[in-house]
Design a binder for these strands. Sequence first.
DNA 1: CTGAAAGCGCTTACAG
DNA 2: CTGAAAGCGCTTACAG
Lengths: 369, 369
Amino acid sequence: MLKPTGDLSASGRMGSEVVEVGRVTLQTIAEHVGVSRMTVSNAFSRPDQLSEDLRARILTAADDLGYAGPDPAARALARGRTGVIGMVLTNSPKDAFTDDVAVGFVRAVAGSLADEGYSLVLLHSSHDSGVVPARDVAMDGAIVYSCAPAVSAFAALRERRLPIVNVEGSPLPGVPDVGIDNASGAYEAAKHLIDLGHSRIAIVVAALDIDDVPASETALDTGSLTIAGRMDGWMRALDEAGIVPRVVGTPALGIDAVLRERIDRMLDDPPTAVLAFSDLAALEVMERARGRPPRPGAALHRGLRRQPLSARVSPALTTVRQDVDAKGRAAVRALLGVMRRDELAPAPPLLPTALVVRESTSRPSGAPG
Amino acid sequence: MLKPTGDLSASGRMGSEVVEVGRVTLQTIAEHVGVSRMTVSNAFSRPDQLSEDLRARILTAADDLGYAGPDPAARALARGRTGVIGMVLTNSPKDAFTDDVAVGFVRAVAGSLADEGYSLVLLHSSHDSGVVPARDVAMDGAIVYSCAPAVSAFAALRERRLPIVNVEGSPLPGVPDVGIDNASGAYEAAKHLIDLGHSRIAIVVAALDIDDVPASETALDTGSLTIAGRMDGWMRALDEAGIVPRVVGTPALGIDAVLRERIDRMLDDPPTAVLAFSDLAALEVMERARGRPPRPGAALHRGLRRQPLSARVSPALTTVRQDVDAKGRAAVRALLGVMRRDELAPAPPLLPTALVVRESTSRPSGAPG
DNA sequence: CTGAAAGCGCTTACAG
DNA sequence: CTGAAAGCGCTTACAG
């Protein structure tokens, strides 16, 4: 009394589909070679479970039948893992891909993930299409980059109980954080200016709605952990030196018209040095400090893409450098940690920064450095 | 006589796992609410198939039980679609992410895909890990960007019979091509130089091992369709004008030491104008033509990331511009076409280019433009 | 508007 | 070294 279990599906399909042979599956090959389905499975997934010879025969048959290997979707369901890791980028990938640091991070993560056999899927925020990738895409874990805790993708990810790590974001209970040490980098930068002899210092930030207010009156009410960290570092150094900086900021997350206008007004009574929240912001200030509005024409350039912006401009910018590659690696390592032992991996330490002193900073004399 | 089909798995799991409640699935919710599994499925996937009221009750129960929605992996298997599209980048994503055009393309594709409800997964080439994403990642189709036909990912994708489109690659039977019209862009550029009065013209290419040979002696034996197309355009215009250019090239796919050396030697007897295969190559020539080796120091800059490289340098580069966003959109549209009707969608026409004349080209007199 | 049946294609223990 | 059993969690027609 033969149980027809195995044959049913195959013959059923053959019967209903007249012309096409139907999809080739493990079963098809098994029948062809005269072994069971799981032996074929083993031939592909656990070579040590069968003889060299049998495996060779199976693989040959598979090749002849045009079988490309076990179906990834079926395998994912059976194994409970997909080999795919998701990444949520600030807003959508579209925005993030215009930011050098973000692109560098994606690149580093993709590389580290590849080393571990994982692929990276980009998760856009929910859309008109009705699809919410954080909820609907099959994956084994996710990296959330520079997102506010309120971002909806976060909720979806957590509800699925997927392993996640939070990169350059606000701390969240139960989620490992990866990021650079903004505070100490900022501290160093401020210290550098102070050591040069500056005392009339201005701070330019984003994510903070402030129009040229002395820092002492400033409530650090920013939603950006990154900027909060930098503010902390700057203020600590300035406090130690007894300096009260002026602060200019915009509620936006980056440089916008509001910030430009406030910078311009601030420059009417220029400080001798400026601490800015990004290289782009520093450049903006420098351009506005000399012949504003910035002249589009003249541009001399070299260094191309490999060089960071700060090094390509003139005067070259003193800046706080971060190791984006290391950040990508740290994020992947942290995520893999969470994925492997189900318990919480110890949060990796904040990544160090390095102050890179270039031409833009000098002893106080005339223009802001 | 009740068939225990449905209950089996649930109670079995409950029995074996003492502490945890086991995973919450459609079944769990179905039992909780007192309906069948497929009604719960309908509540999530086909809201019109059941009453508002029942649906609300189901969704509430799901929420209470911490159910995040149907498992994507299981859904993918049952539905036969994943919602994920793969992208194979030149070499690995790591390399491609240092190329502005490639990054712009990825960005555009991710955006277009998101509009259609798809997510983008980056497919690295096979690796030590043994994982071959093109073979092992569950997806509904793939975009192959700037790859030689021999790239192994291609074979894997085709063996799986996945819908694919080929972007900026060599034509492959049965695969739609998307790309810019390199030949006509190049033709325009050469025509521009000729119209300016140049006749001593040099061509600088990659993917072609040539050391300062007159074009008439040149066998266009390049593996790069892009470069072949440009050569075609240039040569057509030059032929028409009866001009025989000198050609300098390297077997590498980009600028390397070989090319630099050949450029240097070529410049010992400088042409009055140069046609280069990329903006970077054009810059390289300009730098080498004046005070070579290039001086690292001086750099004045503006325009930041939004501006293409060609516009940021001085003298600003005359260049053939392409619409990377349009290319991304075209690739997605073509792929979706293949995915929807199984038959081959008509290959979209080559995307137009535009000659952007800037400072670097002028009438012949001294240095190469 | 609701559900019983069949199936998606594979893998993981577990016997032999 | 090979295979029978059970299952991964969902969905698609199809009846009622």
